[in-house]
Design a protein around this nucleic acid. Structure first.
Lengths: 156, 156
DNA sequence: TAACAACTATTATCATGTTAAGTATAATTT
DNA sequence: AAATTATACTTAACATGATAATAGTTGTTA
């Protein structure tokens, strides 16, 4: 697109913000920045970022059904099913049917799964801490608050 | 995990923030909130969110090579290759080799591709505008600035 | 100029995102 | 109780994310 055409567009039509100032893209890039060191850490564990999220949720809240697990891990339901299966094969979780409601599937972290969390939590804490320092404590909290306002699951 | 075990953990070991206060997860959830209406809009176009990003970059900056396109679209290189192929098959872009450097592949938006952008930009502008209202103009700009601080590609 | 390294792009592989369809069980209605 | 509806989960299909391996081209150096 020529410069002239771009200027014309700006004058006569509603235009999107430049991709440099686009909120969805800013979210993607920020996530990249955060996840790079975390992914680096996870390389040694042999599990993925999403599998780490599932194990963390299970470690924090204990045994739960797949639906709840999906919500707590911010994963889609089908992804959660697949990841649970993978983690079971790796020996990091167990799956059991609910006898009261046989549709329900409970997932629970194993000793081995908990070990993964325990062994890497200090490093993960360090990574989070580095970002707090980079942004400043106040900015960090502000950012979390602003992001929460966009969360579709949040109780407005 | 029992309550007692959780309390013990908190006392003796470094702990991660609750998933409720985790920055990576907050970024995912915020993105979900933003992308829901955008994906809804894109349903009518038959293209995906990533394909939309590629077309937008091409519309804004004009013809460019795949590497630059990947950066401008915030996509991985291999993803960009695949998406360019898909978009070419749909008739929304053209691909040409650079005669000066035959490694390089140029991608350019077609009239049909530009039409997709033009037809849906007003709706996209409306969606962005809604979020600005929801957050407030000042918060919106603050959020973009804070996110930019996490962007690994940003010039600190 | 031949060997080597660097660069651009493509392809491969596995995991996940996303939507839709399907299955089994439970709850509700008639 | 049979039919219907709703729920929890699973599977399928296609696109993308992420990493690694490969191919073709250009640049550099011995």
């Amino acid at each position: 697109m020529t410069l002239k055409a771009r200027i014309m567009n700006t004058m006569v039509k509603p235009t999107l913000p430049s991709t440099e100032r686009s909120l969805p893209i800013a979210l993607i890039r920020a996530r990249e920045g955060i996840m790079n060191p975390i992914r680096e850490m996870l390389l040694k564990t042999g599990i993925t970022e999403q599998q780490w999220r599932v194990l963390r949720a299970l470690a924090e809240y204990g045994r739960m059904d797949t639906k709840t697990l999906a919500q707590r891990s911010s994963l889609l339901f089908p992804s959660t099913t697949r990841i649970s299966t993978t983690l079971r094969q790796k020996g990091f979780v167990t799956q059991t049917r609910d006898d009261q409601d046989r549709r329900r599937q409970f997932v629970e972290i194993t000793i081995e799964g908990q070990k993964i969390i325990d062994e890497h939590t200090p490093h993960a804490v360090q990574i989070v801490s580095d970002f707090k320092i980079k942004l400043g404590e106040e900015n960090y909290e502000t950012l979390l608050d602003l992001l929460a306002m966009l969360d579709p699951g949040a109780i407005d």
